[in-house]
Design a protein around this nucleic acid. Structure first.
Length: 563
RNA sequence: GGGCCCGUGGCUUAGCCAGGAUAAAGCACCGGCCUUCUAAGCCGGGGAUCGCGGGUUCGAAUCCCGCCGGGUCCGCCA
């Protein structure tokens, strides 16, 4: 609803500016703490027309005429010094609730977007660094889907890199602990292998040989690879499912070598690019980048970047937009990728969502060195901690129920923590802090939802139904109006998030909505109110419950009915 | 050395791209509120020279330049 209000104000203001004979390019409209929307246009006009901003604002407001159509959304426009403030109307507030009751859904868009995220190497379990990628990627997919895009999520499996070769080699050499979850067992072999490889040149060449044989498609080697990669991936998928993350498809990079796509990319680049040969090795010079990009090794095998290029070309034929969620360390690579794709005349170029690194207080994360906190370990601990909290508060519930709530709260807290800060912020991960289930994080929002459910449940138990229609204009207490206004901006927040590919405003919105509901909860008793007012408040509670549920769902967080 | 990112109360952050109304929250701290729909809640309080120095502007946390501190990339690794 908020967008409709904003559009109405735009038209209104534009008309008034014409009437008052002012010309300007931007209306300078922004949401504000002082009004429902405010314009700073008087400032820009002040310089141009050499008049004090205050008198211009007054002048503009004098020319504002609200038509009956405007009044459906806008109640008034006031000049406050140099600012022009606009306020929503009563019917806007009512319409907001009516619309939510009717179930507000976004129109479908034709655009198909492929989002690639997580894509951790299959050489061990996901750790907290991958978690940031996975949660950002999954939440982004949910936001874009919610505003109507057709979204496909992809996990690009790097099965041709050196890491995997080392893991495969390590598994043959040291065996596999079958008691352990697959991804963890493979990490053990991988770490042990790396330790040995550091000092042993013979082993190094064994790994090289393994890579070469995999690239040419040696049957026996392929079988060994497959068993390692699938086992690891199964473990990774299980971890992702715990977080409510499911990829639509897994794309193996080896397919692009086997299909001949990689070779075709190299041929194409030879013709179109600024190429430098060093023996059998081929390098590509890209404009604006000092470092040339190696697209084929001296031994004739392919490299990650070339395969990635083929992968992106493949994707570009299957979508209208593609988004890659990458760690900061991939920034240069992504730039090279984009420039090379441009050279290949690919019409869909990737957009990048880059996030800064997660490190431990003791330093950076490394699977190879075994220096990481696995996602599984973190989830176990956080659910355990959540259970203690639930147990403290709800000794009346059964163990199963408490565990179910603990799982929802724990995972929710984790997901919320990852998206609440902007991605360019470097995170130093503190386990204790993560386990300290933050009061105003996901549990706070979930609690508000549970409270709303509780009111509705108690109402039901007393035989009181949420009415089909109610006199919504009874909802004019400060905390009611503030809550309805917040509800009205939900779609607007989502659209902005989708447009800017930024998620933390969504997390912020969820918290603010929960906060306003809690204030309403405190100030406005629902079930004890007079019948008419009770009916209207029940509608408000149900609408809030729905939006809380929806915003949590967009964040990939479950909404418990009690906690 | 060069590129990119970050630097806002004790701690974690929002605001910065598109400069404007007393710099906005959470945690922690202090003080209130459970005979009323779940106190994982609500109300109140203290606490910030927005890293430093210049510049542009009627106006700078926000734009420009320089510096300082932290991170990261600059492999025939991925």
């Amino acid at each position: 609803m908020y967008r409709a209000f904003k559009r109405a104000v735009e038209h209104l203001l534009k008309r008034a500016l014409e009437e008052a004979s002012y010309e300007c390019t931007s209306l300078e409209l922004e949401p504000s703490e002082h009004a429902d929307i405010t314009s700073r246009v008087a400032f820009t006009l002040a310089t141009k027309y050499r008049k004090p901003p205050k008198s211009i604002a007054d002048d503009i407001v004098r020319h504002i005429v609200l038509t009956p159509a405007d009044r459906a959304l806008i109640s008034e426009a006031v000049a406050m010094g140099p600012y022009i403030n606009f306020y929503v109307s009563d019917s806007f507030l009512n319409a907001t609730l009516e619309r939510i009751k009717a179930g507000n859904t976004a129109d479908k868009r034709d655009t198909k977007i492929i989002i690639e995220h997580t894509s951790a190497n299959p050489d061990g379990p996901l750790h907290i660094g991958h978690l940031r990628n996975a949660i950002i990627g999954d939440t982004l997919a949910r936001v874009l889907k919610r505003v109507g895009y057709h979204v496909e999520t992809q996990y690009y499996v790097n099965d041709m890199g050196r890491q995997v070769a080392v893991a495969v080699w390590g598994v043959s050499r040291f065996g596999l602990n079958m008691e352990k979850k697959g991804d963890h067992a493979i990490a053990d072999a991988y770490i042990a292998a790396n330790r040995m490889l550091e000092s042993d040149a013979t082993c190094q060449s064994e790994v090289d040989a393994l890579m070469k044989r995999y690239e040419i498609g040696d049957e026996a080697v392929m079988k060994r690879y497959e068993s390692v990669v699938q086992r690891c991936l199964a473990g990774i998928k299980a971890s992702l499912h715990r977080l409510n993350i499911r990829h639509d498809i897994f794309v193996f990079e080896s397919r692009f070598v086997r299909s001949g796509d990689v070779e075709r990319v190299i041929e194409e680049l030879k013709h179109r690019g600024d190429i430098k040969y060093e023996g059998p090795a081929i390098m590509l010079r890209l404009e604006g980048i000092d470092k040339e990009l190696v697209i084929q090794r001296t031994d004739g095998t392919s490299l990650y970047t070339t395969r990635d290029l083929a992968y992106h070309m493949w994707k570009s034929e299957r979508c209208d937009r593609m988004i890659d969620v990458f760690g900061k360390d991939h920034e240069l690579v992504s730039e090279q990728l984009r420039k090379a794709l441009l050279l290949l005349s690919v019409d869909v170029l990737p957009e990048f969502v880059i996030f800064e690194f997660v490190s431990l207080p003791s330093g950076s994360l490394s699977t190879r060195a075994g220096r990481y906190i696995s996602a599984d370990e973190l989830m176990d601990k956080i659910e355990e901690r959540a259970y203690e909290e639930v147990d403290k508060r709800r000794s009346d519930l059964s163990g199963d129920k408490k565990r179910a709530i603990a799982r929802i709260v724990g995972i929710g807290a984790l997901r919320y923590d990852m998206v609440k800060v902007s991605p360019e912020k470097h995170m130093i991960f503190d386990l204790e802090e993560a386990l300290d289930i933050e009061k105003k994080g996901a549990p706070f929002v979930q609690y508000a939802h549970a409270r709303a459910c509780s009111i509705l449940r108690v109402a039901r138990e007393h035989g009181i139904a949420v009415p089909e229609s109610a006199d919504l204009s009874l909802l004019r207490a400060d905390s009611e109006v503030a809550l309805i206004k917040k509800l009205s901006t939900f779609e607007y927040v989502l659209e902005n998030a989708a447009c800017e590919l930024k998620l933390h405003p969504v997390a912020r919105y969820a918290r603010e909505l929960a906060e306003l509901f809690n204030i309403f909860y405190k100030n406005c008793p629902v079930l004890n109110a007079d019948e008419e007012l009770r009916a209207a408040r029940l509608v408000l509670v149900e609408c809030t419950m729905r939006v809380l549920h929806e915003v949590l769902s967009v964040l990939g967080i479950e909404a418990p009915e009690e906690m």
